[in-house]
Every structure is written in C-alpha cells, then in structure tokens.
C-alpha cells in the first residue's frame, strides 16, 4: 500500500464530528468543582485530574494516529511539534507552539495561547494551588507513554494564575526501546 500523506491539524479538525465547546467547557468545570467538593484537598484534585488525563491520553493516542496518518517521528523535537500543531488542533481546535528547547533536545515548552477549557473560568481564592488544566498534562503524558516515551509534564505558566499564556514543560525522561513480539524479517 502506498504511504498516505500526513494530514494537517486543520484538515482533520474540519472533518471530525464536533460539538459545541460550551458543553465541553462547562462539563469540565463541573467535574473540577465536584472533585474539589469530594476530595477537599487541592493537591488531591490536581493528582486526580492528571490521572484522568493520563487515562484519556492512552486511548486518545489511537484516534490521533488513526486520523492523522503521521509517520514515525525521527526525534523528540518532531514529536512535540506534531503534538502542538496536529494534536491540539484536531481535538481542541486550537494550535500551540513549541519553544524553550534545552541544549540536548529533551526538554521544551508547549505554549498555548487559547484554551477552550478555561472559557468562563475564574479561580476563587480558596483554589490558588489548583492546576485547573491539569488534565491536559495528563493527556500528553499518557499519549506519549503509549508511543514509548516516558515524560514528565509540568505547568510553567497558567493564565488562571495571572500569566499571559499557558506553558507546559515537557521533559523526556527516557525512550523505552520497543520490543517486537514478532521476528525481524516480517
């Protein structure tokens, strides 16, 4: 079969089923609120959101690979680029950019200027330690985990905490070599 050309994030987003973002935003908000009530500790909520994101990420990566036709990324640089340009676009309809690379190319920042998760959101004083969008970092971590990259994803800047953009630091911890269950010559 001839290789299929990778599709741009815009092209995929134009073709997938879409829903009104308000429903998504408000649902996420209601979940965070409920978690805050149930778990009480802000730290616990952060952890739980990250866990939920991770679980979503490990499933979402399949849809991503199926729809985007991306071929194997040569390095981590390309991987983060694909996440920012195609991944964010095809699911959330927004584009992110990648900056702040360190010297050995294992750590960078994904910068998000527009984020549908935080439309209408203000953090009350009691939730100052909350990483409201922590689900996103979980999704990225989970998705990369499924393509053999162990990463650490942390928030550097957060609009809800007074910064001008969202900045996620993605740090490649280790690349797990793939183990083939089948023979080399197949």
């Amino acid at each position: 079969m001839a290789p299929v050309a990778p599709r741009s994030g815009d092209a995929i987003f134009a073709n997938v089923e879409r829903v009104n973002a308000e429903l998504f935003t408000l649902t996420y908000g209601a979940i965070v609120r409920q978690l805050l009530t149930d778990l009480e500790e802000v730290e616990e909520v952060n952890k739980q959101l990250d866990q939920m994101g991770y679980n979503i990420g490990i499933r979402l990566v399949d849809e991503f690979l199926a729809k985007s036709n991306v071929s194997r990324c040569v390095d981590f640089r390309e991987t983060t680029d694909v996440i920012a340009k195609v991944g964010f676009k095809m699911f959330l309809g927004v584009t992110a950019s990648v900056t702040n690379w360190d010297a050995d190319g294992t750590c960078c920042s994904i910068v998000l200027e527009d984020n549908p998760l935080v439309d209408f959101v203000e953090l009350p004083d009691t939730c100052q330690g909350l990483y409201y969008c922590n689900i996103l970092s979980g999704v990225i971590r989970g998705a990369l985990d499924m393509v053999s990259m162990k990463t650490e994803v942390t928030w550097i800047r957060d609009v809800l905490r007074g910064d001008d953009v969202f900045e996620l630091q993605v740090k490649l911890l280790k690349q797990v070599p793939e183990e083939y269950p089948y023979k080399d010559d197949e």
Binding site: V19, N20, L60, E63, G93
Partner: peptide, 17 residues
C-alpha cells in the same frame, strides 16, 4: 462562529468521569 471542539473530547471526558 460558535466555538467547537472535537466530539472525542467530550466523549472521553464523560467516559473518564
């Protein structure tokens, strides 16, 4: 236009919730 996100977003969020 009214802002939209992919349906998978809400689907996976609900499933996970």
């Amino acid at each position: 236009m009214v802002r939209e996100v992919s349906e998978s977003c809400i689907d996976s969020l609900l499933t996970e919730m």
